[in-house]
Design a protein around this nucleic acid. Structure first.
Lengths: 152, 152
DNA sequence: TCAATCGTTTGCCAACTACAAACGACGTAT
DNA sequence: ATACGTCGTTTGTAGTTGGCAAACGATTGA
């Protein structure tokens, strides 16, 4: 059901607008990276990998908040496309070290470019200054919200 | 997979923050109306009904962008709680006229109150002026985006 | 009389998520 | 050396969600 628009009639309530815009952003973003053969999970995994390259699968599963069982399939898909590589750890031969390949890093950069274009499209009505404002407000709100989540 | 946070590292990219905040808003909102025995669909349906009270089910299905098949169950749940009432149309006895009951209107008001509280909670880090800014920006962006959607 | 509409029931199908059980390979403690 | 635990992997189960197709009774209109 996508009739969320109707909830906007309450005076100055941002909630519905927020989820509505986020949904558009998600849809556009997915469409933007689909031609690259990527889905959201792939992109998230690649992004994590760029920062903590050489992680074990268990560590990745923890970071991504997915079951290690489900991570296997995700990594398989990335490996089939040559975006990541698995190799045995020399220290502990039970472990798989996951590394971003050059192709993976390159595609990730492409994907981020496509994502930026999608974002520009969704926020087309906002000029540069307004986008900065929005970004600042979102950062404020999410930071506080994250702190509350961590406490609970 | 809720590892969306990692996508924020791109410079001044609002997309990830947006969907992240929207997710929190959605979760909190659902939690806020859950004690009332409502889910998001119920709230949306009730809100639509308040504006176009006395609609037929077919009209409601169109507005809500749901299949008339799936609308039946939704209305059943609302009717069991006494929030809406169905009656046959005198003009065309095939049709069901759906009306918001007093109890429904009352619960809807309660739900909106709970929703406002949830929104205040999620946007706790923003003061009044900042919330107005956010609201204005979201309205700008969604309005433009809606126009683009209508064109396509 | 025949076709179409409306609400309704039933059932299917696709996608996704989480999770449990078990296995081989391997490390570690006793 | 034995026992136990860990890591990646495979397989299967279960629940949720969503949309959609088929068919029915009641009713309307041609």
């Amino acid at each position: 059901m996508s009739g969320l628009t109707v909830l906007n009639q309450a005076p100055h309530r941002s909630a519905a607008l927020l989820v509505q815009l986020a949904r558009r952003m998600r849809v556009r973003s997915e469409a933007a990276i689909a031609p690259l053969g990527l889905r959201a999970r792939h992109l998230i995994a690649l992004t994590v990998l760029r920062d903590q390259d050489g992680s074990t699968q268990a560590a990745l599963a923890t970071t991504l908040h997915v079951d290690r069982t489900n991570l296997v399939g995700l990594l398989n898909e990335l490996e089939e496309q040559g975006l990541i590589a698995r190799r045995r750890s020399s220290e502990d031969r039970r472990r798989h070290i996951v590394e971003l390949t050059d192709a993976g890093a390159h595609l990730l950069a492409q994907a981020e470019f496509a994502l930026a274009a999608a974002e520009d499209e969704v926020l087309a009505a906002l000029d540069r200054e307004q986008r900065e404002q929005l970004y600042a407000l979102l950062q404020l709100a999410t930071a506080e919200s994250a702190a509350a989540c961590a406490g609970a």
